[in-house]
C-alpha cells in the first residue's frame, strides 16, 4: 500500500534527521578534541592550565590568565544576578497579582531577546564610564573602566531573564497545599517562601544557577567589548581580564599562520565545550527530575 510505504519512509527519514542532528554534540566534541590534540602532545594538560605566560610566537601557551578571567567574571555575574533574580521570581510567584506579572514579563522578554552586542554597547556607554569615574575613584584607584567589574555587571544583567524564568518554573512545582499549610500555621508570605518554597526547591535552584553559569562562560561579544583584553590573571574587581571566549574570538584571524596556535585556540574552545556540556547535563538532569 502506497500510503503505508510513504508513512514508513517518512519515519525513517525523520529518524535519520533526528539522529544526525543529535550527533552534532558528538561531532563537536570529537572535532574540537582532534584539533586540540597537537598542543596536548607538546604540553601536558596541567602545564597548559597552570602556566601564565601567553606568548604564541615563543611557543608559550599558558591558559591560567584566561581561566581566571572567566572565573572572576562568571563569579561576579552570578553574584549580581542571583539575588536579583531570586527575589524577582519569589515576588512574581508568591506575591504578585497577574496584572503585575503581565507588566513584568514583557520586560524580561526584551532583556532575554537583546543581542549580546547590544549589551556590549550598553556596557561601553554606561557601565565602563561609571566604573572609571565613580567606582574607581571611590576606592582611590585609577582605572580605564574596562574591568572585571564592568564585565560582571554586564554579564549579570544578561542572565537575569534566564534565571528568573527557570526559578519561576521551579517554584511553580511546589504545591499550593504545602503553601497553604504554612499559611494556616500563621506564617507570613516571606516565611513560607523561605521555609517551604526555597528549601523544597533548593536542588532546582542550584541546577538553575549552574545552567546560568554555563551561559555566562560562553558569552563572547559583550565580554570582548568591556573586559579590557589583558592576558594577566586579575587580582581584583578593578583589573582588566581576558576570559576564554574573548581569547578565541580575538585571535581567530592570526591563528591560521601557526598550526600550534590554532590548536591552542581550539583547545580553549574544547575546554569551553566540555565545561558547558558537563554543567548543562548536570542541571538539565536535575531539573528534569524535579519536574517529575
Amino acid at each position: 500500500m502506497r500510503r503505508l510505504a510513504k508513512d514508513r519512509l517518512a519515519g525513517h527519514l525523520m529518524a535519520l534527521l533526528t539522529i544526525t542532528s543529535l550527533l552534532l554534540v558528538v561531532a563537536m566534541g570529537i572535532g574540537l578534541y582532534l584539533k586540540a590534540a597537537p598542543i596536548l602532545q607538546e604540553h601536558s594538560l596541567w602545564e597548559l592550565l597552570s602556566a601564565s605566560e601567553w606568548k604564541p610566537m615563543k611557543n608559550q601557551f599558558g591558559f591560567f590568565p584566561f581561566l581566571m578571567g572567566t572565573l572572576w567574571v562568571s563569579g561576579l555575574a552570578l553574584l549580581i544576578a542571583i539575588p536579583i533574580s531570586l527575589l524577582t521570581a519569589i515576588f512574581l510567584t508568591e506575591y504578585a497579582h497577574s496584572m503585575v506579572r503581565r507588566f513584568v514579563f514583557p520586560f524580561l522578554d526584551i532583556l532575554a531577546g537583546l543581542p549580546s552586542v547590544i549589551y556590549g554597547v550598553w556596557g561601553m556607554l554606561l557601565i565602563v564610564p561609571w566604573v572609571s569615574n565613580v567606582a574607581g575613584p571611590w576606592v582611590q584607584r585609577n582605572t580605564t573602566g574596562y574591568t572585571v567589574l564592568a564585565c560582571g555587571i554586564v554579564l549579570g544583567v544578561t542572565i537575569i531573564p534566564l534565571l528568573v524564568s527557570l526559578f519561576i518554573e521551579i517554584f511553580s512545582n511546589v504545591s499550593h497545599e504545602l503553601r497553604e499549610a504554612t499559611f494556616a500555621l500563621g506564617a507570613t508570605k516571606w516565611q513560607t517562601a523561605k521555609h517551604v518554597v526555597l528549601r523544597k526547591t533548593a536542588p532546582g535552584i542550584v541546577a538553575a544557577i549552574v545552567l546560568a553559569a554555563s551561559r555566562v562562560m560562553g558569552e563572547t561579544i559583550a565580554v570582548i567589548m568591556v573586559c579590557g583584553n589583558l592576558a594577566i590573571a586579575p587580582g581584583s574587581l578593578l583589573d582588566a581580564c581576558y576570559p576564554i571566549p574573548a581569547l578565541i574570538a580575538n585571535n581567530y584571524g592570526e591563528m591560521l599562520s601557526m598550526p600550534l596556535y590554532e590548536s591552542a585556540l581550539m583547545f580553549a574552545a574544547f575546554i569551553l565545550f566540555f565545561v558547558v556540556l558537563v554543567f548543562n547535563l548536570f542541571s538539565r538532569l536535575v531539573l528534569k527530575k524535579i519536574k517529575e
Partner: peptide, 28 residues
C-alpha cells in the same frame, strides 16, 4: 525521546563561539 530532548537541551546551551570554532574547523 528523552535522550534526544536532553541532547537538544545541551546543544541549546553550547555557546555560539563554540559553534563558530567548530564550524570554522569543518570549513577548513
Amino acid at each position: 525521546g528523552s535522550i534526544a530532548r536532553l541532547a537538544y537541551d545541551v546543544l541549546f546551551g553550547i555557546p555560539s563561539i563554540v559553534y563558530g570554532a567548530f564550524g570554522f574547523t569543518i570549513m577548513i
